[in-house]
């Protein structure tokens, strides 16, 4: 089976690699600083810093949906993103109500909406594989 790698997919993978590298650097920097008692006005941008590359991944996925020239592959990616969104909203909504009624502890232990959206991309890829015979060979 020939794998499909359009220039748009190559750009997406490059953007993903760069953003994940920035994320790891930002995360380690922020965790280290807060463990050493970081506070004051600088604490705010430092706390937000790891979120910026994660938001960048959302941007990279949306750019992929715009830039991918193959209409069938693009449709698969759109479905994958929609399934990820539905999966994430479902998990977070159920979790929120469980917390509201004190059935599970508050806080998320670091597993926020982005984590479940990325997990949902995996669910979307499986769905595409089962129903369309391919996940687009990218994500």
């Amino acid at each position: 089976m020939t794998s499909y790698r359009s220039p748009a997919i190559k750009r997406y993978l490059l953007r993903l690699a760069v953003l994940m590298t920035i994320y790891l650097i930002a995360l380690f920097t922020a965790v280290s600083a807060f463990r050493h008692g970081m506070s004051g006005p600088l604490a705010w941008p430092l706390a937000i810093a790891p979120a910026v590359p994660v938001v960048g991944v959302f941007w990279a996925v949306m750019r992929l949906l715009i830039e991918e020239p193959d209409e069938f592959i693009r449709m698969l990616f759109v479905r994958q993103a929609l399934i990820a969104t539905g999966f994430c909203l479902t998990v977070m909504t159920v979790w929120e109500f469980l917390q509201n009624f004190d059935l599970v502890p508050t806080g998320n232990g670091g597993f926020g909406a982005a984590f479940f959206w990325f997990m949902g991309l995996g669910v979307g890829a499986i769905y595409n594989r089962l129903t369309a015979g391919t996940a687009g060979e990218c994500a």
């Binding site: 499909y4 193959d70 209409e71 592959i73 687009g136 060979e137």
Partner: peptide
């Protein structure tokens, strides 16, 4: 100028191409 997956999906009736395609 499409992916092999597109051709396969059209041939097997899993995907209907756009009018331009």
């Amino acid at each position: 100028q499409v992916s092999r997956q597109s051709v396969n999906a059209i041939e097997t009736g899993k995907y209907d191409p756009s009018l331009p395609l």
